[in-house]
Structures are given as C-alpha cells and as structure tokens.
Design a protein around this nucleic acid. Structure first.
Lengths: 152, 152
DNA sequence: CAGAATGGTTTCATTGCGCAACTCATTGGA
DNA sequence: TCCAATGAGTTGCGCAATGAAACCATTCTG
C-alpha cells in the first residue's frame, strides 16, 4: 500500500495503528467516496465522474490522482487509439461492503419516511438485505458486544 | 432526520436521492467518523474525544454540534450536579456496520503485511469475521452482481 | 477555599474548495 | 483535409473550513 500522497509527501496517519483512521485518511472525504461509488456503478471516464458527482474539475483531477496513488483505481489502456479509462483495482472493489453499509444506513436515517431514494438490487432485481456484522456462529454483533484489542 | 446544520442553514444534499451521498454528507469528513468510532469504543466526554482523536477543540465543538443536529449523538443529563455526557443515539449506534466494514477494509489494504494494528473482537475475544453483503439466500454479492435502481 | 481540570469560545493565520476561464490533445464530421 | 466538438486537465481567484493558541466560565479535588 502506498504511503505517500499525490505530491510524494509522506502521510501522517491520524491514528497510526487504527484501521478505521487509516481508511478514513484514504476515503474520508466526501468526494473520494462518491467517486468509488460511481466507479462501482459504471463510471469510467473523467467526464462520467464529473457529471455524476458534480465535483469541480480540478478537485476531480486531484482525487483521481490520490485514489490512484493509494491503489484504489488505475488507468487502463484501451486497445486501439481509444482513450484510456479509469477502473477500480481489487482494493477499490473491496470497498463494496463499505459502500453497501453506508448506503443502507443512509436509507434508514437520512431520508424522511416515504421520501424516495435509489435502492441496491441483485441480478434478479431483489433488494439487497441488510448487512449485519456477525460472530462465527452467525450471532449478530453490536458495538456493545465487541471491543477493540491492540490499541496502544 | 434533521435537515439543517448547526447554524440553522438548510442543507443542500450532494446528490438528493442517493443514500450514499446523504450518508457522506453527514459523516463524510475525517473527524465525524472518528468521533463516532470513539463513542462506540467508550468515549463519553469532550476531553475523551479530544484526547483520542487529537482534533482541534474548536473543530470538535463544531463536529459534536453537527453530529447532534443530525441526530447521531445527544447530551445526556447526569443525575445530580454532575457534568453531562455525550452518548450515541440509535441512529449513531446503527453506524456500527459501517465502522466495522471500514475497519476491515483498512486492515486489508492500509497496512503493510505484518504491520501491527488493532483488531475488533467479540465478548469471547474471538476476532470478528469478515462482513460480506449477501443475497437473501446467503450468496455473497459484489458490485458486479448488484446495481442501483431508481437513480433519476 | 485554592488550584486544577473540564468544556467550551474567540481570534487569527493557513489551507482547501468551488467556479470560471483557459489550454492542449483526440476524435468526429463535412 | 480542415474545422468543430469533446475529453482531460491547469490556472487564478475568492470564500469557506481548518488548526493552533489564547481566553473564559464551570466544576471537581485536596
């Protein structure tokens, strides 16, 4: 994993050994997250992202670079003289559970009852069920029943 | 759900009917997320949050207010003349799956192999298994096998 | 009761962000 | 082939957000 930002300066992690803090340093701003969301939803070109997010172009340039520096996206060469396209790396694709849980939280808590919003469906059009952290035996876990080990 | 920020101005949602964008508008900055993380991990007072996150005090004031305005935390009155404490609301607690997936992503992609980091364990000390979105029949889902319905 | 700790607020310099205009390469059409 | 359109940025400017430090009012503690 890359340890420097787009300009080559080394990153001072907010909290050196907390994975949540490190993840937040990478995608913890509004735009990076939405860029990844749109990439998962089919966005491939600079203008795709610009149109969907409404982000300023200079900021989009910056975020695409940073996401690339962090190994979440890459520019893939097109076969013939076609333009290059952006694509998620494995690490970027791996954010899928984060996007899904965030989406489900938003559905439950950021909309008025009855207010329309988009929904995530599987190949058969069935709504994706609520994602819940669970123990190995399937028992659902909450912040009450879990704790962080190894924080210094 | 509250529709105004701490100063009473109305919020212009980044993307009006995308739950991911709305969630990002609420917790999409580095600090809000870490404050919620620490609240889940036992932080209750202003100084708890300040010490754990290292955030500037004026920004902490601002974020606590905004999180309260969005209904994620509240100030609970203490019995006698004791100081009030911050506590997560149900909506705040409900961010648990988001924090967990973010943590698990960070563990996999924001650390060098072998680099130490904290881990999330259940009441018996067992590491929390990887959280994966799944269809109703238990089949794991990815961004390839899902799509967003209802985006205008 | 005095001093320290808690829970902020204010001030001010620095940084980041959004908008608009501009550049430059690629591509498509007459 | 030449010109227009589109894609992918870059630059400059003004405003809003951030961070460090100082200041202040309560509330504990010895």
């Amino acid at each position: 994993m890359a340890r420097d930002d787009g300009a080559g300066r080394s990153l001072a992690w907010t909290d050196p050994n907390c994975p949540v803090a490190r993840a937040a340093d990478v995608i913890g701003d509004r735009w990076s997250l939405l860029i990844v969301r749109d990439a998962m939803d089919g966005a491939r070109t600079f203008t795709d992202f610009q149109r969907r997010t409404g982000i300023a172009r200079n900021i989009l340039t910056d975020r695409l670079r940073k996401l690339a520096a962090h190994g979440l996206i890459t520019q893939v060469e097109a076969p013939s003289g076609k333009r290059r396209r952006y694509a998620l790396t494995a690490a970027g694709e791996d954010l899928f559970p984060v996007i899904v849980t965030l989406r489900q939280w938003g559905e439950r808590h950021a909309f008025e009852p009855g207010e329309p919003h988009s929904v995530l469906v599987d190949e058969h059009g069935a709504v994706v069920p609520r994602v819940v952290p669970a123990a190995a035996d399937g028992r659902p876990l909450t912040s009450e029943t879990t704790s962080v080990r190894g924080r210094e």
